[in-house]
Design a protein around this nucleic acid. Structure first.
Lengths: 98, 98
DNA sequence: CTGCTAATTAGCAAAAGTGCTAAATTGAGT
DNA sequence: ACTCAATTTAGCACTTTTGCTAATTAGCAG
């Protein structure tokens, strides 16, 4: 579960998408317009982010509004911070069975 | 540059390695013993981490001592946190040209 | 229902990532 | 120089990821 998040974050385009989304929700189309990749490619990046639950999608009639899922992003940041905390006994990367 | 870091973090084994290393420096061999992947595979994971500068390697005679590079890990965590900060005007994922 | 726009899914080819075994390297000891 | 142990590099097979174009679905307007 943590894994899909980090995998989603591993592509620069997807981090860029999150950076854009950070400033507020955005329509898929507007998002796509900001990148010079093809529309379907953008759509797939969004799907990966959605799968990792880093974003949520909400239909607005014919368009789809994307939004960052702050808590998942927070968890990821926390996991990284846990990786550098001075020894406090428990394993920060231990993850519950999938 | 940020990119190689997130890519390095995208593999669970590599995050585990960092989790082990968090508790203190460790010899490559000891590290390898903790996982059930082959030795060369572990070696490659370490190479990826080193390439991303998430760890540093230091020869100790015939063995090699690995150590987390805290600052790079910190930067990554900070980048993620930047992705969820309330709008403060600048783009947290903007990265200098490669 | 037809047509239009927004967005996703299918299918494919190219590139990158993973993990293995076998071979090479590096340093220490003799 | 020869040998042993620790580690990395080479080479290969296999899977995943990426990005494209073409085709499809979804919702709305007429």
């Amino acid at each position: 579960m943590q894994n899909s998040v980090f995998k989603a974050l591993s592509h620069p385009a997807r981090r860029q998408i999150l950076a854009l989304l950070r400033k507020g929700p955005r329509l898929a189309g507007d998002l796509a317009a900001e990148f010079d990749t093809s529309w379907p490619t953008m759509s797939r990046h969004l799907a990966v982010l959605k799968e990792a639950e880093l974003v949520t999608a909400e239909r607005q009639g014919t368009q789809i509004l994307y939004r960052v899922n702050t808590s998942v992003l927070e968890d990821a940041a926390t996991a990284l911070l846990g990786l550098l905390g001075r020894d406090n006994g428990d394993d920060p990367m231990k993850e519950a069975a999938e």
